[in-house]
Amino acid sequence: MKIALTVNGEAVRAEVEPRLHLGDFLREHLSLTGTHLGCEHGVCGACTIRIDGALARACLVLAVQADGCRVETIEGLSDSGEIADLQKAFHERNALQCGYCTPGMLIAAQDLLLRESNPDRETIREHLSGNYCRCTGYHAIVDAIVTTANGRSG
């Protein structure tokens, strides 16, 4: 099936099989490997992206469903500078080790920060409840998000 969408601001046209999920489309067809795949059934959050501005699991969206949509991945958010401060805070606070969860964490965290300028730790944890990290124990991730929120409002 033919699809046309924008990915990180660029127009993309492709011919895909209906069974192809958006995560594989981004990784295999567009070489955007920052979108990680862990479980492929919606549980781990490693594949978190934005579709038309809203959070989504790339493993639970078919590429054909994204026809006509505006898709943004970690590459897009990084290149535009939108989350530069958040990335810096993750680095400084040691909020990543292996980095597998990090793209999804950053996108989920940014989603919260766009809506709430000063979320408390409980709200941050709640918003990240669908993103697993097997390395850090989450504490440093919450620290980094609090630091970013303070930086943006100060």
């Binding site: 978190t48 639970l60 969206v61 989603d111």
Partner: peptide, 9 residues
């Protein structure tokens, strides 16, 4: 019900 990314869809 689920998590933000799942609730969004």
């Amino acid at each position: 019900v689920a998590h933000p990314a799942i609730r969004a869809r």
